[in-house]
Design a protein around this nucleic acid. Structure first.
Length: 243
DNA sequence: GCGACAG
DNA sequence: ATCTTGTCGC
């Protein structure tokens, strides 16, 4: 459900109605017109109760996908809710247009949750994007709630060198802008790349993602969504024990 | 023209 | 992303 009913241009009203065009050029111009709407707002990790992680897995022939969203307690990291959607890919993978492939099934899946997460952690980029409107921004704009992008590799820019210790970070710079941070979630392991999706800030996002990654490189909510989507794709019979 | 390119 | 288990090393 969209957010506040602000001054909206005709173009943006149109975007509300058709947020996922199937034409690549139309998709790019939509990103350009929406990038300025990303809100950077301070997020206090300690006030976050529920965090959702999202991921999508594809069948080898790319004829089927499974979108998964898992909600964990920020404090205990226990799974409190989850939902999945099986669908057919409607948009090809094109670097920079990832949202048009993954956001539709993810939005549908979030709609199936019975809980309402305070923050959504997306597997991909937020503002660290050629037009500053990656998947996490698109999700945040569509949901009207805080989102954070957490990518395993870079789409744009370069990260300043960072120390080997867990918790160290450095600026992620693209075209002269600080668009995110490289964050070391495990000592001696490649960093992950954090960027603001919507209604978040880099300082709060960095702390939150670090708190959510006590043991592995990838934060728990995204790991849980990754595992769940793979299980469903494989057609695992026994799913008992899951909340 | 060439290389890079979230998942 | 996906095809895929064990294995080497800290």
């Amino acid at each position: 459900m969209p957010e506040e009913p602000e001054e909206t241009s005709h173009g943006e009203q149109d975007a509300r109605l058709r947020p996922f065009p199937s034409d690549p050029d139309e998709a790019r111009s939509l990103q350009e017109s929406l990038a300025h709407r990303v809100r950077v707002t301070a997020v206090d990790p300690d006030s976050v109760s529920l965090v959702a992680g999202t991921d999508v897995t594809y069948s080898p022939d790319d004829q089927r996908l499974v979108a998964a969203v898992v909600v964990l307690s920020r404090r205990t990291l226990e799974v409190v809710d989850h939902a999945t959607t099986v669908a057919e890919p409607r948009f090809p993978y094109v670097p920079g247009l990832f949202a048009f492939r993954e956001a539709p099934p993810l939005m549908e899946t979030i709609g199936k949750l019975r809980t309402s997460p305070d923050v959504v952690l997306c597997d991909g980029a937020g503002r660290a994007h050629p037009r500053r409107f990656g998947l996490a921004c698109h999700m945040g704009w569509s949901l009207g709630r805080p989102t954070i992008g957490c990518a395993k590799s870079l789409l744009v820019g370069a990260a300043e060198p960072l120390a080997e210790e867990r918790g160290s970070w450095s600026d992620l710079v693209a075209e002269g802008d600080v668009v995110g941070r490289a964050l070391r979630t495990r000592t001696g392991v490649r960093p992950v790349y954090i960027s603001v999706g919507h209604d978040a800030d880099l300082a709060g996002s960095t702390r939150l993602v670090l708190d959510l990654s006590p043991r592995y490189r990838i934060p728990e909510p995204i790991r849980a969504a990754d595992q769940l989507s793979r299980e469903i794709l494989r057609g695992d019979g026994d799913r008992s024990g899951n909340v």
